[in-house]
Amino acid sequence: MGSQTTIVLIDDDQDACELLKMQLEGTGRMEVTYTTNSDDALVIIEDKRPDIAILDINMPGTHGVKIAESLAANPVTADIPVLYLSGMVTPGEVHDLAKGDGQPPLISKGSPEEELIGAIDKLTSA
């Protein structure tokens, strides 16, 4: 595979962003841009047009679900897949939620790294 998977990550916690950046870029085939200010999310995603957007849900600025809705409503970003990453739910609930129609899939912050990478691969391979 010649090209890298480009990822924009929105999470209000700097440490979370740093960790994910390190883990994902550690695979050697992903490139992560992040911001901890969710109000900048739409601008950055529209600008970068990444292969996937990973969104935290509960954030002090714009709410993750709101960002996902705005992305879907914007023709420029509508085809960018979204993955929620949240501390709100258990791995079991993630599984159930993922079955819901039209909802972006969701990964718990407690899930192992492999699961996250697997989910990204699945969403970007289509």
């Binding site: 209000d12 916690d13 440490d15 979370a16 960790l19 994910l20 935290d56 509960n58 002090p60 949240s86 501390g87 709100m88 718990s108 912050k109 407690g110």
Partner: peptide, 14 residues
């Protein structure tokens, strides 16, 4: 509540 929520998620991730 929000602050605790954030620290919780990041702690789990690490």
């Amino acid at each position: 509540k929000k602050q605790a929520h954030t620290v919780k998620g990041t702690s789990w991730m690490y």
